[in-house]
């Protein structure tokens, strides 16, 4: 099972949107896929119309008192399951730290939980809250690939560098870090410029760009992945391009 995290320390950059759409596309292409919503706000959970309720909460799940499988929910889409988030996830950092005291390494606890799913899925997507926390550290350790949505701003490159540097300090396996542009607007000169130059200057930043489009924003109203209600059109095509990047990096 390959693990793909959608991560950026910044909020509102398109992490959840990317995770949901890519998980949908992966499943539609026949990969047995699970999406784990790790954000206590439960945006991905909401988009799949699943109630934000996890029996036993983060504590039981992270502590190993309840098997991960028991929390799985089938989505409305063939081959795609969801591990929903609920509000107890706001304490996940504490739960992870506690699992450290019980012998496991705090930064790797999530990997152990994902291993329980490895037999049933080909791909796991992790949707993460915007933070630098024990949860995000766990996510980065568990991932084979970290997708980083970048809104083209002057500071964006620095944020990306910081993440790449942090991952660079990992001992042993390091995930691929793959930046892509999010919510881009071709009418903005800065957007055009950064999209043209950054991929050349930074290893790991691709020129794949998800334009800012109303049809993408509508996901929250439709409560469905974008390709499910707008299967053709530039927005879905952009996510399909991003999926192609993922396929190439992970050699799927």
């Amino acid at each position: 099972m390959k693990v793909v995290a959608s991560y950026n320390v910044k909020g509102g950059v398109g992490k959840t949107t990317a995770a949901v759409n890519l998980a949908y596309l992966a499943a539609a292409r026949g990969h047995r896929t699970v999406l784990w919503d790790l954000d206590p706000q439960g945006a991905a959970t909401f988009l799949f119309r699943v109630k934000p309720r996890v029996k036993g909460g983060s504590t039981k799940l992270v502590g190993g008192a309840r098997p991960v499988e028991a929390a799985l929910k089938g989505t409305d889409f063939e081959g795609l399951d969801l591990l929903p988030a609920d509000f107890t996830y706001r304490n996940m950092d504490l739960d992870l730290a506690r699992s450290h005291s019980s012998g496991k390494r705090a930064g790797r606890a999530l990997s152990g939980l994902l291993d329980e799913l490895a037999g049933d899925y080909d791909l796991a997507f992790l949707d993460t809250p915007p933070s630098l926390s024990l949860v995000s550290e766990n996510v980065l350790h568990a991932a084979d690939l970290v997708l980083v949505p970048i809104i083209p701003t002057v500071l964006a490159a620095r944020t990306f560098d910081q993440l790449a540097d942090f991952v660079g300090t990992f001992e042993g396996d390091r995930p691929d870090v793959h930046g892509f542009f999010s919510m881009t607007d071709r009418r903005k000169a800065l957007h055009r410029e950064l999209i043209a130059t950054l991929p050349g200057e930074r290893e790991g930043v691709s020129s794949t760009s998800i334009p800012a489009l109303a049809v993408i924003e509508q996901m929250a109203v439709r409560r469905a992945p974008l390709p499910a209600y707008a299967p053709s059109g530039p927005a879905t095509r952009a996510y399909e391009q991003l999926w192609t990047d993922v396929e190439q990096i992970l050699d799927l």
């Binding site: 799949f48 119309r49 699943v50 109630k51 409305d76 409560r223």
Partner: peptide
């Protein structure tokens, strides 16, 4: 036929 709950989830 899909049986839906109050979130209109199948």
């Amino acid at each position: 036929v899909a049986v839906l709950d109050d979130e209109r989830k199948t």
